[in-house]
Amino acid sequence: MLQKSRKQGRLITTLTVGEKLHITEKMDDKDLLIYLGLTNDNNPLFIQHDYAAITSFKQPIVPQIMLNGIITAAISKHLPGPGSYILEQTIKYVSPAYHYETVDFVLEIEHIDEIKNEVLIAVTAINSDKLQLLEGKLKVSPPLI
């Protein structure tokens, strides 16, 4: 059987402390609806404008796990890339993201442990008003081969 060549992520020896990845995503209805459909999450805070209007948020917010998904996808696709495995993550959601916002994510390598094949990646996200939405750290094992 023929096998497709697969793109491999970066090995730990090719990564450097301070290296950054910037990702920008717009929080669109289609992405929200796909998430809600896949998870069957019917939290009215995520989709019902009339409900959200009477909360402290005043409008529907983006599910936090969607923001987390953007972060984990960035690790899987780019830094370190395909074959990476997230070992641990801690994320603090500082402010909510709202529907239709544009969110900028920055992932930065803070520490490299070649013996354990682990990198510590810091992540932050801000909206177009420069309001911080989240901050966190992820311990990631880059691909070994």
Score class of each variant (00 low, 15 high):
94 V>L: 14
84 S>K: 11
92 K>Y: 10
119 V>M: 08
130 K>F: 09
64 Q>N: 15
42 N>K: 06
130 K>W: 03
114 E>H: 13
66 M>S: 07
4 K>T: 08
145 I>W: 05
35 Y>A: 00
46 F>L: 01
79 L>R: 09
81 G>D: 10
51 Y>Q: 11
113 D>R: 04
138 L>D: 01
26 K>N: 04
61 I>Q: 08
115 I>T: 14
126 I>A: 15
132 Q>D: 05
111 H>Y: 07
52 A>Q: 03
143 P>S: 07
141 S>G: 08
32 L>V: 06
25 E>R: 15
57 F>M: 14
132 Q>W: 02
40 N>T: 02
20 K>L: 11
15 L>C: 05
39 T>C: 09
93 Y>W: 13
89 Q>D: 06
37 G>L: 07
128 S>K: 10
142 P>G: 12
38 L>G: 14
58 K>Q: 14
97 A>F: 03
45 L>I: 15
26 K>T: 13
85 Y>P: 00
44 P>N: 07
115 I>C: 03
62 V>F: 00
81 G>P: 10
45 L>V: 07
61 I>K: 09
53 A>V: 00
64 Q>A: 15
85 Y>G: 01
96 P>S: 12
127 N>F: 04
80 P>E: 11
85 Y>M: 15
111 H>R: 03
137 K>W: 04
139 K>V: 15
17 V>H: 06
67 L>I: 03
24 T>Y: 02
66 M>N: 05
88 E>P: 00
11 L>G: 14
96 P>N: 12
74 A>R: 05
143 P>Y: 08
48 Q>W: 05
57 F>R: 11
69 G>P: 08
50 D>C: 04
44 P>Q: 02
69 G>Q: 09
83 G>A: 04
121 I>H: 04
75 I>E: 06
108 E>F: 04
140 V>G: 00
29 D>C: 01
53 A>Q: 13
79 L>F: 12
29 D>H: 07
4 K>C: 02
25 E>H: 12
96 P>C: 11
129 D>C: 00
122 A>H: 09
99 H>F: 14
